[in-house]
């Protein structure tokens, strides 16, 4: 995170988790991103990559200043439609940081093996496994090969 003195409080972690559940809500197979316990991963990645660290800090800062959240005892205590409205406001007012923040949530969510299993993605590195594909079969050229050469002579 760019501002080295900035660290997340327990309250921030609660808010982050609640926000993550809104960004990627529960599906038929899995709970939401926050409920899956991925806030810690998001915090870790944000600590490694400035771009995401700054986005996370700005978004949490902005949510802590959100008037309705202050009145009600914190973002996590708001009704769901109020939370969504607060996020939508950030999305239009803080385009760049919100954008990176959503990327951060998606990155940790779609790095998780449980999610890979759910969406049918083979987890792990691409190599050395690769994929088997049938070798090129020239019979597929039958139609296009019949065409007269049409490149422009000069």
């Amino acid at each position: 995170m760019p501002e080295s003195e900035w660290t997340m409080t327990e309250a921030d972690r609660l808010v982050l988790s609640a926000v993550m559940d809104l960004i990627v809500p529960s599906s038929d197979a899995l709970p939401g991103a926050g409920e899956m316990g991925l806030a810690e991963k998001a915090e870790e990645l944000a600590g490694q990559i400035d771009l995401y660290g700054e986005a996370l800090r700005r978004i949490l800062d902005a949510l802590s200043l959100e008037p309705s959240a202050r009145a009600e005892g914190g973002f996590a205590a708001l009704e769901e439609d109020q939370r969504i409205a607060a996020l939508k406001a950030l999305e239009s007012n803080m385009v760049k940081h919100f954008d990176k923040f959503v990327d951060l949530v998606y990155i940790v969510y779609y790095s998780d093996e449980r999610v890979h299993e759910k969406v049918g993605w083979r987890t792990g590195p691409l190599q050395p496994r690769g994929w088997e594909l049938p070798p090129f079969d020239p019979t597929i050229l039958e139609t296009v090969s019949k065409r007269e050469p049409f490149w422009r002579r000069v």
Partner: peptide, 8 residues
């Protein structure tokens, strides 16, 4: 490609 976090 050799790493699990290749997309990151």
């Amino acid at each position: 490609n050799e790493h699990e976090d290749w997309e990151i």
